[in-house]
């Protein structure tokens, strides 16, 4: 599938009706999501025929992108039932088989090493400090091949240090810097729309932890 085609399909997905600020629910734009998964597959072969988990999947954009690129088994995990409902409808709409589990990523316990790749757009930790690093540490435990994640560019050194020192990453690499459009979703947003710089990361877990 071509990048433009992937971006187009993702652009048709339903997004949050009533976003919940305490969960830092922001939609992952089709521009970013398509580039993230396209890079994961075309540069690293981490998607097609793989088992992929989408952490904090929200409306399912990243997981659906993985399924569109031929992932064999995709599981979306989120704490919020309403989001999972939308994600499930989104997957149905595109006739994709995608699995969902309602859970809190922070206390996920997973058996074995079945997951190859984790993709995620974690809460950036602006509401609850450290939320993104909590997600990352669990992702690096669960994934056997790679973790793709978005983090604010301003936190780059912190993310690198934490991943390598505390989360058992064997490597942490910024693949590119992207603009994340934050639409005017919440009342405390003063500006109509802002974009912030985010890094697309690829982390590789240490084996046999």
């Amino acid at each position: 599938m071509k990048l433009k085609q992937l971006e187009g399909l993702l652009g048709s997905l339903e997004q949050f009706y009533n976003p919940k600020i305490e969960l830092e629910q922001y939609p992952t734009g089709s521009h970013i999501a398509s580039r993230m998964l396209y890079t994961a597959e075309n540069s690293f072969g981490d998607v097609t025929n793989k088992v992929v988990a989408d952490f904090g999947c929200g409306c399912g954009t990243l997981g659906i992108a993985a399924a569109l690129l031929g992932a064999q088994h995709v599981v979306g995990l989120d704490i919020d039932a309403e989001s999972l409902e939308i994600a499930s409808e989104n997957a149905d709409e595109l006739e994709l088989d995608m699995e969902f589990v309602q859970c809190d990523i922070r206390n996920l316990r997973w058996e074995g090493q079945i997951i190859d790749t984790v993709v995620m757009n974690p809460p950036f930790g602006t509401r609850r400090k450290g939320a993104d690093m909590d997600f990352l540490c669990v992702a690096l435990k669960v994934a056997s091949e790679a973790v793709y994640s978005l983090h604010k560019t301003t936190t780059r050194e912190h993310v690198r240090r934490t991943a390598l020192r505390d989360c058992h990453a064997s490597s942490a690499e910024v693949l590119c810097e992207l603009r994340y459009d934050v639409p005017h979703l919440y009342k405390f947003h003063k500006k109509k729309e802002v974009d912030i710089a985010v890094d697309l990361w690829r982390f590789v877990p240490k084996k046999n932890q």
Partner: peptide, 22 residues
């Protein structure tokens, strides 16, 4: 839920040591 998903899920309650298989 596929059985592949079932094969990865484990009971995640604090203190549980033998949470698999559900």
């Amino acid at each position: 839920m596929r059985l592949l998903t079932h094969n990865m899920l484990s009971s995640n309650i604090k203190g549980v040591t033998n949470g698999f298989p559900l």
